[in-house]
Amino acid sequence: MRKILLPLLLFFLLAGGETAVARWLPSPFVAPLLLPALLTLAFRLPATRLARLAFLGGLAGEAASGLPGGTILAALVALPLAVRALVRRPELPVLVRGLVGMIAALLFSILVQAAAPGPFAPPARLLAQFITAKLLFPSLFVGALVLFMGSLLDAREQRRFSSLGLLPAAAGGPYPSVK
């Protein structure tokens, strides 16, 4: 039970933070928080646990952000799983993990923007603002957070976080195999 409730609580806190960030950033800018959390974990967790966490995270984000369609929920599940399938090397330098996170966030932003109604690209006079505020800024933000959180987890050797049920019991030991 703790393995479900505590991560859910953590993700609710992140979702709340995301809502707060969304309210206080200048209007067209967005700064996702759930996504970097899930991507950071994607480098470490077995796929099944990651899928569960991604779903809980997506659900928390969906509930807290007021999104109607749940596109973000589906994308939040799909993206960490895809990253997990492609990159299963926790020994990668954190800078590389941050870069992968940034690329994944860019794909996420494009997916979410493509799911929005209307033409994908706005009028030419708004294109620069669109690319900056909707694609580049969130990607850089996520990349930086993945880097930061990855460093943090490395520095703590995963011990403190394992008590929250977010990391496998074998944390710090050999990388867990995908179940």
């Binding site: 995301e18 809502t19 960030v21 969304a22 309210r23 067209p28 800018f29 967005v30 996702p32 984000g61 509930a63 807290a64 952000s65 007021g66 999104l67 109607p68 369609g69 596109t71 973000i72 932003s109 979410v112 923007q113 799911a115 929005a116 505020a133 909707k134 969130p138």
Partner: peptide, 14 residues
């Protein structure tokens, strides 16, 4: 208002 969209694509309030 209990929620605000955070994905950057939709613009909704709950």
């Amino acid at each position: 208002v209990t929620g605000v969209s955070t994905d950057g694509a939709s613009a909704v309030l709950r």
